[in-house]
Design a protein around this nucleic acid. Sequence first.
RNA 1: GCCCAGGUGGUGAAACUGGUAGACACGCUGGACUCAAAAUCCAGUGGUAGUGAUAUCAUGCGGGUUCGAUUCCCGCCCUGGGCACCA
Length: 809
Amino acid sequence: MSREYVFAEIEKKWQKYWEKNKTFKTPEDKNIPKDKRFYCLDMFPYPSGAGLHVGHPEGYTATDIICRYLRMKGYNVLHPMGFDSFGLPAENYAIKTGTHPSEATHANIDNFRRQIKSLGFSYDWDREISTCEPDYYKWTQWIFLQLFKGGLAYEANIPINWCNSCKTGIANEEVNNGRCDRCGEPVVKKDMRQWMLRITAYADRLLDDLEPLDWPESIKHLQRNWIGRSEGAEVDFTVKGTDDSVKVFTTRPDTLFGATYMVLAPEHPLVEKITPPNTKKAVDDYIARSRMKSDLERTDLNKDKTGVFTGAYAVNPVNGKEIPIWISDYVLISYGTGAIMAVPAHDQRDFEFATKFGIDIIQVVSADGKLFDKLECAYESDGIAVNSGEFNGLTTPEFKKSITEWLEKKGIGKLAVNYKLRDWVFSRQRFWGEPIPLIHCEKCGTVAVLESELPLILPQVKTYQPTGTGESPLAAIDDWVNVKCPECGGPGKRETNTMPQWAGSCWYYLRYLDPANEKEFASRDKQDYWMPVDLYVGGAEHAVLHLLYSRFWHKFLFDQGFVATAEPFMKLRNQGIILGEDGQKMSKSRGNVINPDDIIAMFGADSMRLYEMFMGPLDVMKPWSTNGLKGVYKFLEKIWRLYTQFPLSEAAPPDELVRLTHKTIKKVQHDLDSLNNFNTAISQMMILVNELTKMDEQYTGILSVLARLIAPFAPHFGEEIWEIMGNAPSISNAEWPKYDEALVIDDSYVMVVQVNGKLRESIEIPRGTPVEQMKETALSSSKIIKWTENSQIVKVIAVQDKLVNIVIK
RNA sequence: GCCCAGGUGGUGAAACUGGUAGACACGCUGGACUCAAAAUCCAGUGGUAGUGAUAUCAUGCGGGUUCGAUUCCCGCCCUGGGCACCA
């Protein structure tokens, strides 16, 4: 009867039970209607050598609670887990120790799986996947081939972001303030043959389709900014004395009359052609100098503008004026056309440049129709056109519209849209990734490996050391590299670059649906059963990397008819970061890292889960507190005593207790539905438990409800008390308790009486008391009389079932 | 610089569509039990004044709207995140 709460035994017992009985195996039961199927996805982890971090269980616990809750409500819930197992850390470890990355990765996965299982999550482990396994990456390669065949994968020789420390090219999305996202080293530009994915072809749809998604606004905002759509016009400027013309992109075609010079990016192809011999040396010097600069140096805002005059002039198409053409690295080759018309009066950057080099500044927009005496800085707002010939007097939006039409009519310009988003640099010069399944043939060009030959297995190498020359370690394996061309049978060479870590995670949610399928990445039948993902939970750090990339792949698969929805993830939630006990980011160097294994050993998985949910709302950043953890542990012990140390009664519980129980069901349910406020759900259960503790006996009915409410949060604990009550396992098959709305609302309430907005009295009265009667009751209270007797009552405000406020003078 | 999110006790936090600020915990203080400790239970716990009922101040700062503002509006300060010469 009065057993102890021995969490270690209980947790082991029920984990074994779930595993043996395959409690969470999820078949595609066709009898369950579509709206009762729920696909709940966690961002799968990269299995690092350091093991699970307390941040991982936070999101995983939240989704697990939702899944268990929904199952009790009769849903068929898909909740899978797997591993994002290609990536640099394992490869770097291999370089250091000589162990094959696959060996280290498998050991790490085993450790991660053990840790994840020790938290009692209700995953269907039969669906586990791992991106570095050939039967998985076969399909990553297959999707790449579809992209290649669809013209969305292309080879380019362009200057890309190169990290000298990781010895590989990286994508724009992986550069942070000019530094490598992974190691923090400055990124340099390097000309290199690259495989690119044409994500820009989807820019508009990636932008537009964000709108209806139930995602955090901040994440949508981040993606919108990253895509960076801007509308404007393209205008051609002829180069004086030649047939050449320079195309520019501008969002302010209304300032064309104020264009007093042009700037080409140093890398612009026309520079060489238009530069006359007398300025050639200065121009070449400048180009050489800017090529030397790192990204960090080129984008440093505080630095002075630099540039040189090419010696050539362009003709402004609106007024025939000749304007000098300069080159400067404040113009980027990768955005727009790599050339701009400069309007110093209305663009701060141009203003600084023109001031430094003594170029004319002509005002063409005015706030009030008047001209400036002297400009201190550029006037960038909208206004009324001045100095603009026949267009004078137009407002900025009117001018934009009419000048664009005018340009179009003359055939020298048109409406244009530009994006900040660039194509995705997709090749890595490293070993531990999916080999890109292409063959270079002298006769046939680049040819796809036959689909029947997939997976193209990552071969064994002698050394994992990156060459640093832009060749991956694979390039050294002659008998792997040299193959017959699948088309002509002649000599060919394999592509030796590998795919980035993001490739495998672009589509993993699809593989969970049908992980053993050898014919397709996932059968259409299973997709139709589950897709799209109903709820996706993970860290906000993937806002523009994984989440943008996978949306892109999904849209491509949709266009090819391989998936049925345009978007993969309907609802997204982010978990907040868990800080160390000192309020600082957890890190090895600070020594404030909390290891889940230690916590589970000391307090059990259920306490760990419950505490992480009790800390605060899911989406906020919050510091760890071991004392707080002890608090929830005591809470579990308190509940335990209710089930083991009290006489049990079958009688009807007191009315107040019944009402509190119904309120608790409602509150917990409401907070779970919010997908965020798990903390207040737990608070409410604590309130109920505190009341129950005061009783001399416990009531079966209430304990049965409480067990079912706590079970999703503390599942092993829930199973055990359920069994103690004499029920057959598993509680995860029990029905979620229902509440009666009539019992949630009290018959009476405490009416607040304020005098001039300040609380002076509170009186308990029946719910529904009419407003007039409320006023009467309030005014006749002796305390209130004391407050009001020597004053004049100006007004009495009453809000039914809430309060009365008496305004006095 | 620009764009988001957020500033509430000693700490984590709560407060439905404007209506009792601080629920629930942690910590702390005192008490009960105990030879003692742990555990458990009980009481107290925003600041200030007072023996006390009580009064008064208080949700980053300064204004405003309102009978009434943590909540709405304007300006500023601070913290976290994102972007950063994107024409």
